[in-house]
């Protein structure tokens, strides 16, 4: 299974980003091979609809699940249509969240927010 986590930096010591749609990078972790790669998020500079564009990139990268602190409704619609699972982060540590996923202890993300649409957030 390939999992994507929004992260602040391209290193394994980086922390989880607050935003799904406007995160600078995604950490793509393969639970079978235990390998990690980083993916640039081209949606970060979007005027609007960043969540939709970011979710499209995730779908096109054949990701099976997302681990994120939060997710807007438009991005969630794209992800759910593509049958991508949404998990909620337990803290800002990438390692902790991957361990929790491997142990089956990550909660499912249920509180989808209505989106910030140019009005800040975080």
């Amino acid at each position: 299974m390939k999992v994507a986590i929004p992260v602040d930096d391209k290193s394994m010591s980086t922390s989880v980003s607050q935003s799904f749609g406007r995160t600078p990078y995604y950490l793509i972790y393969d639970t079978d091979s235990k390998e990690s790669v980083f993916l640039d998020n081209s949606a970060i500079a979007s005027q609007g609809g960043a969540g939709i564009k970011a979710a499209q990139t995730i779908v096109d990268s054949n990701i099976n699940a997302i681990i994120t602190p939060q997710c807007g409704e438009n991005a969630a619609e794209v992800l759910k249509t593509a049958n991508i699972k949404l998990y909620k982060t337990i803290n800002f540590s990438v390692q902790d969240n991957i361990c929790a996923l491997n142990d089956g202890k990550l909660p499912v993300l249920e509180d989808i927010h209505p989106g910030f649409h140019g009005h800040g957030g975080n």
Binding site: A43, S46, Q47, G48, G49, A50, I52, K53, A55, Q56, V59, V78, T81, A82
Partner: peptide, 11 residues
Amino acid sequence: FCKFNALAFII
């Protein structure tokens, strides 16, 4: 094309 990202192509 859509600069507003109003379109997505899924499955």
